[in-house]
Amino acid sequence: MRIKIWGARGSVPAPGPETMHYGGNTSCVEVTLSDGSTLILDAGTGIRNLGLALPRVERPIHILLTHLHLDHIQGLMFFAPLFRPESEIIVWGPASPEASLRERVGRYISAPLAPVEVRELPSHVSFKEAEPLEWDLGPARIRAQSVNHRGPTLGYRIDDGDTTLCYIPDHEPGLGAPLSQLEDDWISGFGLARGASTLIHDCQYTDAEYPNHLGWGHSPIADALEFGQRVEAEKLVLFHHDPLHSDDFLDGLCGDIHARWQELGRDPGQVELATERRELEISPQAAPVGA
């Protein structure tokens, strides 16, 4: 399994010279499975560039949405394969008692927010509620599970052979009780992420910023690291960077993050801040491509 990060920013796109390195596009990760097929995790603005780079293939394209906040669906309407008649696109996402997934996504892809309606898209698009569910896509077993964020939100676990990717980009597992005081099975997302070869996890705030954002659905560095350590993730990729965090600011956090990961008994080389266009081979060793 292999991944490429097309957007790692949280909340709102943050383009500009101060975010050139980590990137300004919002959540989108391309996953290439062992048989060469592609999954897409979230449809933030990063999916626009991914759509331009994807080769035209006859296979269906599966897009797994964690939730429908705008930073996770904003790029969907600009995903080139949606406008190709030969494309088959299956959008997975959380169920809601209020309306179907198609109806909820359609609120964005419709007037007055968009010039087209879902029914006008020339591709073959279908929507499937993914909660709570396990299913197979090609060689991979996909598991979706609700996690602690604001509104219906899923995390995904993708098992392909002996490797596992877990993706929980928006997550506040420490809300209400310190993680250190909770048994494993009382931690949101624990079962989903346990033993993952690579865990992509929310880390929007510094520890100093977090008290002013309690309940907003995102993690501070301390909780992201502790969660990664508790689930024994082989590699931890910290994701969903706050739009106010410039490259210089994030670079300044790296040394501290590596040191704290090491203090938790982990290899400091196995934690990193998500970077746009970064590619990783997901193996038990999680060696970076070209390293």
Binding site: D185, S188, G191
Partner: peptide
């Protein structure tokens, strides 16, 4: 695999 309680 050790699982977790329902989110609610």
């Amino acid at each position: 695999m050790s699982d977790q309680k329902p989110l609610e």
